[in-house]
Design a protein around this nucleic acid. Structure first.
Lengths: 351, 351
DNA sequence: ATCCCCTGCTAAAACCATTTAGCAATTGCC
DNA sequence: GGCAATTGCTAAATGGTTTTAGCAGGGGAT
């Protein structure tokens, strides 16, 4: 445990060269004309002293800090957050950057504070993450830091990473179609008539569009469409319970796994088996989905991949494009065996 | 959007004073002899220019950066992480600090890198968080940054924040005892005979100690003790299924909510009702617990409170003590109504 | 009138790395 | 041999803040 940190000057002194030379060599500039011998001496000195550059000093001089800020409305209220954060963190680590985590609760005042705190620390880029995809308020930024939106959009910043919900919606329907079921299909979570004027996030809108387009394309229709504001297990339970009093569905397309969980409970109480009596497909690949019996087949939200991609975009120059990440299919036991088994093989994936 | 950042010198110039004066006034030192008029002028100048101190410059000079590092083995593999992070983040924000998040996967090489990355950035403190409580390897630290262990321990760093598992274990048993059930109680998740020599984390050891002490204190004994290595839903399911072939328990004490979830599934399939036929108590207050029907009564892991406390300890001077955070009881519907209803009122809590 | 203290402020150093401008010595060219 | 270009390196400025040391001027005590 040494008294003081070792500085570049110490390294230079030990190498018998100037700090200038040491700096150039250690930062790996190749436009320099320093001798191979000088390189060797400096590197030797640096490792022998255990030199670590002082990031504050470097940031002061260069205005970059090898750090990025991940500014999120909620960090852990939803399990989605974790995946985004994890992916971002991994990509940051690979790029030898460090990640500041900031939470705003979606409150403009805290958003502003978060941005300022980040900017004060000379971050090299900002990620604005939204836990439920939406148009995000981004406070005005002084300077010109690159910004990437994650799971949300902003008019001012076109660079965004989003799940490919439209394709995901289509895939869910295709899985259903491939079981050979053609009637008594129920949509759990949305009914356009009931939800006139209700705001659903852009992601969900796309998910629904994919579903409806694919249903039409396969010549299928819903026997019933049940809506509720929050997609929580108890709503899935109540809606399914109500449904079962009148009808006996063959398949339920659930708009998320939590609704599906509720449906499982109601079906179980009614003595119906999955997938024998009723098949289910769902969305998100919530942790829940793997716990259920049988496992729930679901179109997963690729949070980790999204987080990774956002950081990569941020760090590889001026980002400007919206990018869609495909939602992988996770096949488990909640769908009856397809009529054409090989059709499903193609899109199979692991847990 | 101004071309350059406003510096302290700009503020001083506008106020007609020296940077020294401006610095002293803005950092709020009271040992100074600057006039009230000077204070007013500097503050006015600072706000009118929108001055924000350059953290890098300040860190360079003072060796503190108003930032802390949260170094965790896993950030989101487990839902526990989120709570710890959230709590820590909230406390950091209150203290006007910023939080670096680093993940090590428990690999020494990455731990070392994480520590170095943090120290390079002059963090004011380090939190080492473990997702499953354990003795944590902490790489040697140069300098003397304060360190707090979170949900884990380290011989070298006595300051630690842990859940009060012993009391939690006792509480779970007390809840059970208060239902009036005196026999046919099963422990799900641990059997000392089967687990000789198996490593269980210190937390779990304390939880078990609390349970066993309280059982003895209430004059109760377990009818069966079932063990499994991983406490996942499918194990809970399998063990309970096996159990039901031989016995018919009145109560199951589950060592975590995931085991309890599996037990719910097995009990449901066997046509037994909760809590009518079988009562359950569990630990952790996993998200799951609130989804189950009936809701699962559980002794919760106070992750958010732990995260908060860790940051507070870190920031309020030299931390040295181990601190236990009580595990709140969450009463839901999985226990039959107690014989002495008022006894439970006292420890009731909300979801 | 001298000395001392107090008030209110400032000059300049320090923190540590990067970068611009440029110096001294050698080589290349005719 | 004379001149330019190249090679291999360094001095010094720079970034923005904090902090140490100290200055100028006024007042009080003696």
């Amino acid at each position: 445990m040494q008294k003081k940190r070792v500085t570049l000057a110490d390294v230079a002194r030990l190498a018998g060269l100037s700090p200038t030379a040491a700096s150039m060599i250690l930062t790996g500039r190749h436009d320099t004309r320093l001798s191979a011998e000088a390189h060797a001496k400096v590197h030797a000195a640096a490792t022998s002293l255990g030199y670590r550059p002082n990031v504050a000093a470097r940031a002061l001089r260069t205005d970059r800090s090898r750090s990025i800020a991940f500014i999120s409305d909620y960090v852990a209220t939803t399990r989605f957050a974790s995946g985004l954060i994890r992916g971002a963190l991994a990509a940051a680590e690979e790029a030898k950057h460090v990640m500041l985590l900031l939470e705003t609760g979606g409150e403009p005042a805290r958003e502003l504070q978060a941005v300022e705190a980040a900017l004060d620390r000379q971050v090299d880029g900002l990620i604005f993450a939204a836990m439920r995809a939406r148009e995000v308020f981004v406070p005005p930024l002084s300077g010109n830091v690159p910004v990437v939106m994650l799971n949300g959009t902003s008019a001012r910043f076109p660079a965004a990473v989003l799940p490919d919900e439209y394709e995901g919606g289509r895939t869910a329907v295709r899985l259903l179609a491939e079981t050979g079921i053609t009637d008594s299909i129920v949509l759990l979570g949305h009914n356009p008539a009931d939800e006139k004027g209700l705001f659903r996030s852009q992601s969900i809108a796309r998910r629904l569009a994919g579903i409806r387009d694919a249903m039409a394309a396969h010549g299928l229709g819903f026997d019933a469409e049940l809506s509720c504001w929050n997609w929580e297990p108890n709503h899935g339970y109540d809606l399914t319970k109500g449904l079962l009093r009148k009808r006996r569905p063959k398949a339920i397309l659930c708009l998320n796994d939590r609704l599906a969980f509720g449906a499982y409970q109601a079906l179980g109480e009614a003595g119906l088996t999955i997938p024998g009596d009723v098949s289910l497909v769902s969305f998100d690949n919530d942790e829940l989905a793997s716990y259920l019996r049988p496992g729930l087949t679901t179109i997963s939200l690729p949070h980790e991949a999204m987080g990774r991609r956002a950081v990569q975009m941020l760090l590889e120059g001026q980002p400007g494009q919206e990018e869609l990440i495909t939602m992988p299919t996770v096949l488990r036991g909640s769908l009856i065996a397809p009529t054409q088994p090989d059709a499903v093989q193609k899109l199979s994936s692991t847990v």
